[in-house]
Each structure stands twice: as C-alpha cells, then as structure tokens.
Amino acid sequence: MLKIDHLTKHYSDTVAVDDLSFEVKPGVVTGFLGPNGSGKSTTMRIILGLDHPTKGRATINGKDYADLKAPLREVGALLDAKAVHPGRTARNHLRALAASNQIRASRVDEVLEFAGIQSVANKKVGGFSLGMSQRLGIAAALLGDPQVLLFDEPVNGLDPEGIRWIREFFRSLANEGRTVFVSSHLMSEMAVSADQIIVIGRGKFITQGSVDDLTATANGTVFVRASDIPRLRSTLESLHGVVNDINDKGLSVAGLTSDAIGRAAFDAGIAVLELTPQRASLETVFMDLTADSVEYGGSTLEPTHDE
C-alpha cells in the first residue's frame, strides 16, 4: 500500500505539491488525475525517493523508499520511457537493473517476452519508437515482480492496440492483488482504465472516489418534454429549478431531480412525454473540479471587429 501524508514540495519560488494526503490501496487500479503541471510527476518522483519533499512523507508499506532493501522487488515504476541511455541495448539496460537488485538474470528474458520486445532486445534503445520505449519501461518495472506499480502517463505515444494491451495489463496486475497507481491528464482514459480516481489540481488534493461516485456528485441536468411547455416552465421555475429551452422541443432543467420534475408535472396536470436525466461525463466533472487550478489554461479569442 502507498501512503502520501501531508506531502509538500517547493521549488525555489513555486509550490509543486501542497499538503497532499491520500492512500492507494491494493487490488484496484487507481488513477491519478490532474491537469498538466498539477504536481502528479513531482509526487511520483518523491514516492521513488528521487526528489526530497519539503514537508511530509510518502511511504510504501509503511517504509520510506530509501529504506527499502531491494526497491525493484517492492516497487516497479515507469516515469519517463525515454529516460534510458540511447547507446545501450534493451537487454543490457535490463541486465544492469537486475544485477543491482540481485534479480536472477533469466528474469530479463521473461519480462522482455512479456512486453513483446524480445525481437529488439539486442538493439540500441536510441532507435526505439515511443511505443517500444514504453514497453521497455514496463519490462523494467516488472523485473522485480513488485507488489506496488507506478506509471506516469503510460498511454502517451501508444497506438490503439498498445493502449488496449496496457489497460488489460493494469487490470490483471490489480486482479493479482497488486497496488496499481497510474497518472494521466486524460480523464477519458482514466474513465475506462481506473477503478478509483484521485484528482489533484495545483498540487492540492481535490477529490477521491470511484468513477461512478465522481459523476454522481456532479450537478447533472434533466431533459424533459411535455404537452404544455410554457406552463411546465413556470411550474418548475416556481420550484427554483434553472430552466432552459432546447430548440422549442423540451426543457433542460438543473437543480431539480427527475423525480421532483415528474411529480410537479403530475400535480399541475401536465402530461410528461419524456424525462431523461443527463449524466455528467467524467470529463465534465473533471473540468468543473479543476477549472480554478489549470496552470496553463487557454481562453476563448474574441473576434476582432474591423471598421
């Protein structure tokens, strides 16, 4: 299990991680979601003991990373797939890593085969595509057969077949009871690959929960079609619903549940023809949650009016 406890990291004048606390449990895929620059990579680097926290701790099964006797046997990580010496072959890269943690040499061929890169094992890594590098990174993460796995933006650069492969891979790791922690800035990706999601923005914890939890808490709207739209509109507005016309066909209602709308229409003697809750997508939820914490947000350009 992975525990982040009041973690804070300052770089000269910026706060990358701000009093962040959460736990990542085994047996499920946990997504780590936040806009670019929100502190995901910094948090992962601190977990691996690469960056020193300003305050707080990150522990693996209760221990600091630096205190792990053979770290590759406990934690497998893929931070940056291209961070391999370009002049070394894939096999030598893995052999050196295995030797450092006293992992048997035959394990190198096993992980190369699992990752599907055995045919290029004796080629220099500098010539690898990003997808092949990602697979090499996954092979390295699996070398020590660790119980905790961290992946920073793993689907970047993968083709659709690779993305499907990696999703199934995360799922199978979690099903084996391992702790799987995957960062991404793509909510659509997390919606399909993660069970639990932790959302951060500007280094701060925003929310945590299952995909269903997160979408359920969002303010969804209800679409309603009825026999007498103007009267239904005034009825719902008297109940403090926020009502918008949709192409004269029906109403979009916010602030009232579908149950309340149905009862109000019945009481007013209006026939309801359609009543559909509009579920907020995880994407919408994410945008709402992190709207205030996007470091490099674009805005809409106003058209120029030339005289």
Binding site: A66, P71, L79, D80, A83, H85
Partner: peptide
C-alpha cells in the same frame, strides 16, 4: 553525465536509492 543527459539517472536511483 550521460545518466543526466538521457534521464536514466532516475531509473538508476530508483533501483539504488542509496
């Protein structure tokens, strides 16, 4: 320095934290 220019220093230090 090749560890720093390639970024592999992070992989190295993750394997050898000391």
């Amino acid at each position: 320095t090749s560890e720093y220019s390639s970024g592999s220093i992070r992989t190295t230090l993750a394997a050898v934290p000391n």
